[in-house]
């Protein structure tokens, strides 16, 4: 029984390490000067929010970095050495957020939902007492353009919230 339990723990560990591997992540660069970033209120659980609205295709996409004490599903926040960020840039893991979202302009709500799920989501698995639980996370992080000059670049994982803009 103990061995079985250890195997499960090991399996979770492998999956999580793989899913959180830096090379699998997408890093979106936002410019604090030019991009609209919401939630500057420190009391808010959502520390950073960037959104995209597509009236024509009837969807609203919100990228939120959530962090709150006593909350178990907080987004990651870590720092990468600038050398590593340069490598990620060369590998195509880092892109301007507007450029990234621009390609969704012609996607319907359904197509966008599928695209984001297929390309960037994974199920984060954890143990809640003796119960195995999962929830969906995305391999998408925000980094600020102004931080790119620093020796260590802060990266903020985001939760994606997608809905239609108009419901009948």
């Amino acid at each position: 029984m103990k061995n079985y339990f250890l195997i499960i723990i090991l399996l979770f560990g492998v999956i999580n390490v793989y899913s959180q591997s830096v090379s699998n992540n997408l890093y979106l660069v936002i410019d604090q000067k030019n991009d609209t970033i919401l939630r500057e209120n420190p009391k808010s659980n959502t520390k950073i929010e960037y959104y995209q609205i597509n009236k024509k295709k009837n969807w609203n996409l919100s990228l939120r970095h959530i962090y709150s004490p006593n909350y178990v599903k907080n987004n990651y926040r870590y720092q990468l050495p600038s050398v590593m960020v340069e490598q990620l840039m060369n590998n195509g893991n880092v892109t301007d957020i507007k450029t990234f979202l621009k390609k969704f302009d012609k996607l319907s709500y359904k197509k966008l939902s599928q695209y984001l799920s297929i390309h960037y989501s994974y199920y984060y698995e954890y143990l809640d007492g003796h119960l195995k639980k999962t929830y969906k996370r995305y391999n998408i992080f925000l980094i600020f353009k102004s931080d790119l000059k620093n020796k260590y670049v802060p990266c903020y994982e985001v939760s994606l919230i997608l809905s239609r803009m108009v419901e009948m």
Partner: peptide, 11 residues
Amino acid sequence: EVSGITKYSSD
């Protein structure tokens, strides 16, 4: 044409 709609956008 519908009897009602509800709209939300993050802005």
